[in-house]
Design a binder for these strands. Structure first.
Lengths: 192, 192
DNA sequence: TGTACCATGTAATTGGTTACATGATTAC
DNA sequence: GTAATCATGTAACCAATTACATGGTACA
């Protein structure tokens, strides 16, 4: 069977720990959420599909004070599939970025409006950066600062977080540069 | 009418210059292609949709030695629409990045295989970075080095390119760090 | 009695990729 | 002739978002 990237994301999470569709949805927020999101309306059908292919199985677990839930567990074939996939050559991932598109078309807007737009974008990426930095501080307190001393799963989470940090830092930096340059250009234009 | 992001990308390109669907497709390679791609099978229906909404119009232009082509021109309402959109608040753009997902799941693969994977990814992003740097050098030769001295459309292209450079540079740096750290971890593990 | 959260699903729609299809011109 | 590039379209499929839908538990 052909497994989608979402399918591998689900298998990967289940390889770490058996959990319900609801739990998976929560996990696809922070920190996985930064680079792969999925809503429950995608996750439940995907679990059914993976179960049909024999890659996961579920059992119903009763809970006190809460409804029953279906806990999904990865099978041997599911684990093999995700292990084979993880280091396999990726198909070229194309990026679609609306903010960069707006920069490319910024000459269509007023310089002050565009400067405001990028100032706001800078703030938003800076905020996200700071949230990631807090997570990093928690990791350092819990697992130490040396990536060589972490457990494999810990290092894997840490590496993904590092990508988030680098991404947001660079993005915020660029947004600031665009807004400041647009402002300087607007000022220069009005001086004449 | 509701215009999609692709629709605004098309309107934005047509705001700069009237052109055919085929020309639009070529333009959605370099440099726009870095942050927004579209194939001809998406562009032709989109043009028809925009024309139906009165945002673009076309006339058939005969060419010597080549087939006729349909040259699309943006209308006043089309231009207003894209001008309104360009500095409007963006809806939160979610990033899906398969490479970061693989880093997060790297503990499922062999350390050497994973190190190889990220070494290869680093090379690929470094290559792209170098292509962008060449484009930057051409821009500097043609328009000078000072963004304050560029024409608005020139600065807009330059700003988008700068994003590409920052993005690839940071991505390559991170991939190198991951592959080197995985190697160091593998070596350390085999020493015991 | 209403709100928040737990828990699971389906349906409709949009956006995007891949495949199918056609036909002209130019250069080798 | 045949491959490459110009030029335009449709159809089938897949992935993802948004909306529709249901029902339990806890707490104020």
């Amino acid at each position: 069977m052909k497994v989608s990237t979402l399918g591998y994301a689900v298998l990967g999470l289940l390889a770490g720990e058996a959990m319900s569709g609801y739990d998976l949805k929560l996990r696809m927020g922070d920190p996985v959420g930064f680079f792969w999101q999925a809503s429950h309306s995608q996750i439940y059908p995907e679990l059914a599909k993976l179960e049909g292919a024999g890659m996961v199985s579920h059992r119903v677990v009763a809970q006190e004070g809460k409804q029953d839930k279906k806990v999904y567990e990865i099978s041997t074939s599911g684990r093999e599939a995700v292990e084979d996939w993880v280091a396999s050559p990726p198909k070229a991932g194309l990026t679609r970025d609306e903010t960069t598109l707006r920069a490319y078309l910024s000459w269509l807007g007023g310089a002050n409006e565009m400067a405001g737009f990028f100032r706001e974008r800078a703030r938003s990426h800076q905020d996200q950066l700071e949230r990631y930095r807090e997570t990093e501080a928690r990791i350092h307190r819990g697992w130490g600062e040396d990536p060589l001393a972490m457990e494999p799963q810990q290092f894997a989470s840490y590496a993904a977080l590092k990508r988030g940090i680098g991404y947001e830092q660079e993005y915020a930096r660029w947004c600031r540069w665009v807004s400041e340059t647009l402002e300087a250009r607007a000022e220069q234009g009005s001086e004449k």
